[in-house]
Amino acid sequence: MTDTEDTPRPTHIDLAAEYESSGVADVLRELDEELIGLEPVKARIRETAALLLVDKARRDMGLATETPTLHMSFTGNPGTGKTTVARMMSGLLHRLGYVRKGHLVSVTRDDLVGQYIGHTAPKTKEVLKKAMGGVLFIDEAYYLYKPDNERDYGQEAIEILLQVMENNRDDLVVIMAGYADRMDRFFSANPGFRSRIAHHIDFPDYSDDELLRISELMLTTQNYEFDDPAERAMAEYISLRRVQPHFANARSIRNALDRARLRQANRLFSEANGPIDAKALSTIGEADIRASRVFSGGLDVDRPPLKEAAE
């Protein structure tokens, strides 16, 4: 534990070698390969990685001693990859040695705020204890603060969080995520958070083209593929789905693909007479996409509940 005092401080540092050996390069490569689009996010993460790498070098040489503030806020619409990036970020911070374990604890208001007086503090502390040595990811963080209810227990959770974010900067990194406008309102009502969060990263919506590439990537990882007409149908689906309610970017695409797989299985089952090959089993056809309600202008969620019950 006291080795650091005995070993002489390095006088030179090879940033490129450090970049490769620390494993940061791997994380960034993974980021590039696994995430489609999100260019501003990737740029910010690369900048952050560079900053952390330089900072680590400075600390190794004894030029800096303070742990930099690493708490972040991720803002963007649902399904834009905030959780995925948070997970990669925890890997990045772990490899750079800013967090000891590098696990991600993902929570929402329910996990932090209790239901009666005296319930919130132990609950929040329990979560914080679990997150020690890793990254605490608070999804939809603005729900912690309810301005219309003065006696809301969220305030208590906020106070504990602020205290831990300040005092245990070596032990955990807090990432708060949510819609951009509501996060802005949350931060302006809680200035303590704004000053303790160093990195604000904004996640843009995906373009239609990016969503199509994402859908193909999702299928490939599950060993499925589109045939050509199905791919055209999917492109059409994406542009139609975007203007309909409850659109959640990549998450909507994943749900659409899950339903397409369901229809494909159903189709194979009813059509098949005789053996079918692996190709037929792993090809999503045009009909599987076109059968979606999106093409007839409505979603399941918007139908009256009575019909659903009758099904």
């Binding site: 000891r100 204890k129 020690m132």
Partner: peptide, 17 residues
């Protein structure tokens, strides 16, 4: 002192307690 801590990753959590 409180409940046993079943899902910690890092010793800091227990040290806080």
């Amino acid at each position: 002192w409180g409940q046993p801590m079943f899902d910690l990753q890092d010793a800091k959590g227990a040290m806080i307690e």
